[in-house]
Design a protein around this nucleic acid. Structure first.
Lengths: 355, 355
DNA sequence: GCGCGGATAGCAACCGGTCTCTACCGTAGG
DNA sequence: CCTACGGTAGAGACCGGTTGCTATCCGCGC
């Protein structure tokens, strides 16, 4: 007899068979009590429950996952959790996952696209029933191909790839896309600035090759064109999505002597740096320079003056991602959901004349 | 023959045996190629690798976990990921977990202590090799007992409970504690304010029954006592750790007519609301009222004026939690690590005379 | 009194890897 | 030429739950 006869000999968790032995029933019966989806006599059930309690038994999720196809797990892949924008999406994902009885794995890539691929591979091993990738995508052919490959691989394994805030991989690729109206938000915000009389608007934080950036620039440009204008390429500055970049770039821009009356920061994080630099230069916001951001993260309400920005429904993006991944039939036409965005007017763009 | 003969009949992932069949070897051989820890002839290895590539094979993490005792997973339990303080700890946890070849599960409790218990139970099922619980603990007997129970249960299963930023459960309880010098930080910060001449300091955001809060108040009080003073209980205001609370409480405090020259906000989040309310009242910071916070989250550098606060090594807390859980021998004496904190002087407490 | 069907419980075969033990190969040493 | 041994590969028993099929016991109707 190699098998232990002790209930739970301290140092190893107890199993169904331990519980069965103690309750004087078979393992199947214990399993049925656990599952609840099979008739078990009340007296038997009570005996089993008692034994489980006495042994402090918990099922082994892995053994359970081996039988069924799925692990009841959702994976969330993101650049960096400390960014408020992603953190709020993460909250939505976690909440919805939890509501759907799923666990949530958190994986960060620190901006390295190769790590995304590695992480998705790992999630394939974990048999997660949804893999949610968040953040703008690199417009790179090889990368795109690898993601397409993963979409198919996940699909074959009964899992689902969900892209949040990035463009679809193409028709026929089994992936769900949850996006927000990036271009439309930029269009509306730029329109707001233009209608406020601004004609020379600087755009800070263009990221070449990043889908999110391209869309915002597109909206920015389209709003100009609607009025028969064109943005000055000289006022569109490349950068990264960070506060310190916003601060630094603004100082340089102010020092350059270029003319402009408004700054469209690619993100609120950038905008908060912009605001600091503008104020340190002695200029007033919005009287001398109007400032606007994008994302509507909490900092937009906290800066002084409060920041006009484009609201992105972050938590809803996260929730929708999980919801659509698990109930694919909810979205009949294709697998592409676009959530709306809208401009939130605050002090940083208020015109002198306005109330 | 019920078993499929097709390699991977589209709709189900391929298994070791599928690969074995295609490579013309046995399942054990495939497993050995996978593990790498057993001599396999070069030619055989090549055949197997080729088959794996052709079938786009990935191991099933659950099957693998079923054999070994652990799941190579670390669980991170937190109130809310959108709080910057917790988000930075999360980043530390995720980074270290990733460095140690572990995956990271994210679980949020939304401040409901019952959910912590449920989550820990779930992690027991998952056979996570560490469960990291972050955030101040409720000083409640029943709750304490349940946590102690879980510590033992996890220990029995070869797993480890780690408490971050909360007091130990008691001697003999198998749990690792990674804490920071909460009381010392509050003591130093209060000392800084007192040495700046402030004698009536308001404390905003006491949370009755929360360990973190009690420790900060203790440091606050001890610094007063060192100078033969005592804080005015009337200036210690109960609240919650949020920006809006800080804003509201400050308005009420200013309107109340109570005398004070400095505000010690229990957290930076509260402080950012305090700053806004003070400035809106027309008072200057720090000339009329000095403001200080706690935690040193990014917002402390972003507010105007920049915020004096107590630096808490958030990422290191997260990393240490994972490290100690996995290499328990690293901490010889007991399982209690306390990281240091220090005051970060910024503009919000600068005296007129100082540079 | 006998047979039938519903309600329960048990047996054993999975799920997909890993690991131990055994078997086989070729070759080098005696 | 035979044996011993290093090097490899295979067979099969796990890990812990789940589940289809079977077996048993019971009450009840004829």
């Amino acid at each position: 007899m190699v098998k232990r006869t002790q209930p739970a000999p301290n140092g190893d968790a107890s199993t169904v068979r331990d519980v069965a032995a103690r309750a004087g029933v078979s393992a199947s019966t214990v399993s049925r009590v656990l599952g609840g989806t099979y008739p078990v006599a009340t007296a038997t059930r009570a005996k089993v429950m008692k034994a489980m309690r006495e042994l402090d038994y918990v099922v082994n999720a892995h053994a359970r996952a081996l039988g069924g196809a799925t692990n009841k797990t959702v994976a969330f892949v993101v650049d960096d959790v400390t960014g408020p924008f992603y953190a709020h999406i993460a909250r939505g994902v976690e909440e919805q996952a939890s509501a759907e009885g799923r666990l949530c794995m958190l994986c960060t890539t620190h901006g390295d696209p190769r790590r995304i691929l590695a992480v998705v591979e790992t999630m394939r091993e974990q048999r997660a029933d949804a893999v949610i990738v968040v953040g703008g995508a690199l417009e790179d052919k090889a990368y795109h191909d690898r993601m397409t490959h993963f979409a198919h691989a996940l699909d074959r394994a009964g899992s689902r790839l969900v892209l949040v805030g990035r463009p679809p991989l193409g028709p026929g690729v089994p992936a769900t896309v949850v996006d927000y109206d990036n271009e439309g938000g930029a269009f509306a915000l730029t329109g707001h600035l233009l209608s406020g009389g601004h004609r020379r608007i600087a755009y800070l934080g263009r990221v070449p090759g990043l889908s999110t950036s391209a869309q915002r620039i597109a909206g920015f440009t389209r709003a100009h064109e609607l009025l028969g204008l064109a943005p000055d390429p000289d006022l569109i500055v490349d950068g990264v999505f960070s506060r310190s970049y916003g601060y630094q770039a603004t100082r340089e821009l102010l020092a350059s002597g270029k003319e402009f009356t408004a700054i469209f920061a690619a993100t609120d994080m950038i905008a908060s740096g912009v605001i600091q630099a503008v104020r340190e230069s002695g200029r007033r916001i919005p009287e001398d320079i109007a400032v606007a951001g994008y994302d509507d993260i909490p900092v937009a309400r906290d800066v002084y003056p409060t920041l006009t920005t484009v609201h992105v429904p972050q938590e809803e993006l996260g929730r929708a991602a999980v919801r659509l991944a698990l109930h694919r039939d909810e979205l009949p036409d294709g697998q592409h959901l676009v959530l709306g965005t809208h401009v939130v007017l605050r002090e940083s763009t208020r015109r002198a004349g306005s109330s």
